[in-house]
């Protein structure tokens, strides 16, 4: 019975059914299944399959995103039910946001979704964020990577402020910074001392793996 539910969880992610994923997660808990096992045997296997299908070109981005959404909905049920020192295995933790004065959200959100689908834990802070908010989130979540997005030439220098603030807080060695957005270039990223620049969501995932020295 439990194996069947794990498969159903995986399938809800593969087929992109967030409502089903949430319901199956609730059913699993009601039947007394271990939440961490549900995640590892169900959701993680499902999202890995989604990632494979996307990488092979069979799945398009909407299928990837709705798969990640299904996983997120089920995690919201399962993670609070984990006991003791149980924790979900993740590739790394990324704090993500758009810099102060900048309301552009979509590119940053796509990057977040792609990272989730590739096994990262993503803390998406939103838009118009001061350097202080990035710092707080890094500390709170023990982040490995900060991803800062800027879409305007008037706001891209805020990315530098985040890097400076991390240095000032003594977090410079602990956390890597990746930057992106329309006006941002490889050379600008180097100039402000970022650890990496990504042109789009897919290259952001590759970059994140490189930054934490993990196999993609």
């Amino acid at each position: 019975m439990s194996t069947e539910l794990y498969d159903k969880l995986a399938q809800s992610v593969i087929e992109g059914e967030p409502d089903d994923a949430e319901e199956i997660a609730k059913q699993a808990l009601a039947e007394g299944l271990d939440p961490l096992t549900c995640i590892n045997e169900g959701l993680t296997k499902g999202i890995q399959r989604v990632g494979e299908l996307f990488a092979s070109g069979e799945y398009f981005l909407p299928e990837l995103i709705i798969g990640a959404e299904a996983m997120k909905r089920a995690l919201a049920v399962l993670e609070p039910a984990m006991v003791g020192d149980q924790s979900r295995e993740v590739v790394g933790t990324v704090v993500l946001g758009t810099v102060e004065g900048d309301m552009h959200e979509i590119g940053k959100t796509l990057v977040g979704t792609m990272l989730v689908a590739n096994g990262f834990k993503v803390v998406d802070l939103g838009v118009d964020l001061s350097a202080d908010k990035f710092i707080s989130a890094v500390k709170e979540n023990k982040a490995d990577i900060v991803g800062a997005s800027a879409l305007l030439t008037t706001t891209m220098l805020q990315q530098k402020k985040i890097i400076e603030a991390l240095e000032a807080e003594g977090l410079g060695d602990q956390v890597k910074v990746m930057v992106g957005g329309a006006p941002v270039t490889e050379s600008f990223a180097a100039e402000i001392g970022a650890d990496g620049y990504a042109e789009d969501a897919i290259s952001a995932v590759d970059l994140a793996f490189r930054l934490i020295d993990a196999p993609a």
Partner: peptide, 8 residues
Amino acid sequence: IIDPRTGV
């Protein structure tokens, strides 16, 4: 629209 594979 977005490129269905890259999001561009």
